[in-house]
Design a protein around this nucleic acid. Structure first.
Lengths: 117, 117
DNA sequence: TCAACATCTCCATTAATATTGAAATATTGA
DNA sequence: TCAATATTTCAATATTAATGGAGATGTTGA
């Protein structure tokens, strides 16, 4: 169960341009994750900046890292994201979620185009 | 479609204790909303502080207000919340959403206990 | 073992944000 | 119209966060 202070850290982390882009890239990448250097290239940000933001995200519990050789691979913490959303939307519409459910049909985790599994 | 700068404003707004509490109260209250004063009482925050945070949330597009007599009623902008979540989760798991879908079953907009409509 | 690579840490500077109380604005009912 | 109510605006202060560069750390392959 997500507590308020963890949710605040998560939202603070997501409120910074570089960090939001990192998370969106990692959401797209899925469990396999991406190395810090690849993220840095995509964002055109120096290593010191990347390190600062990646550890901010890790502190906030939104990503985790593992070393693979000389690279550090970051991947999104998907339970933290879902917990964050659950925390935000808890008890929506005073127990009548059908009021806002339609709005959330579009927000579900869905691919751009059909994919075979 | 949510753009990055709007998402950044929304997350920044949600990253402050008082504002996060306001949004959660308004999510629970649903479309009918709550007056600024009632929110201030619940949060035990002075009127100037409340006004600052409420207008921050309104600027960010997360809530809207209407005047009713001498009160200003605030209500959550539910499409903004769903758009924000969609933006964050876009293209998750590289087109194989079944990877993270289970995590999101728990995050859906559901009531604490069953409610008759 | 050494050079190259990948990333992190530290520090100084700069910028953005929240808080407080007092005063201003808008609305109502007597 | 006037006093009471509800909320906003303003300005000074206090707090917190982001940036950039230099150097440190850990890892690999020759």
């Amino acid at each position: 169960m997500m507590q308020e202070d963890r949710a605040l850290m998560a939202f603070a982390s997501l409120s910074q341009e570089h960090r939001l882009r990192i998370v969106r890239l990692l959401v797209e990448a899925g469990p396999v994750g991406l190395p810090a250097g690849v993220l840095g290239d995509k964002l055109e940000a120096g290593s010191s900046k990347m390190s600062f933001h990646l550890s901010h995200l890790e502190q906030a519990g939104l990503v985790h890292s593992r070393r693979d050789g000389r690279q550090i691979i970051y991947a999104v913490e998907i339970d933290a994201l879902s917990g964050l959303i659950a925390f935000l939307m808890q008890d929506c519409c005073g127990g009548r979620p059908e009021i806002c459910a339609p709005a959330f049909a579009a927000a579900s985790c869905a691919p751009k185009e059909s994919a075979d599994v």
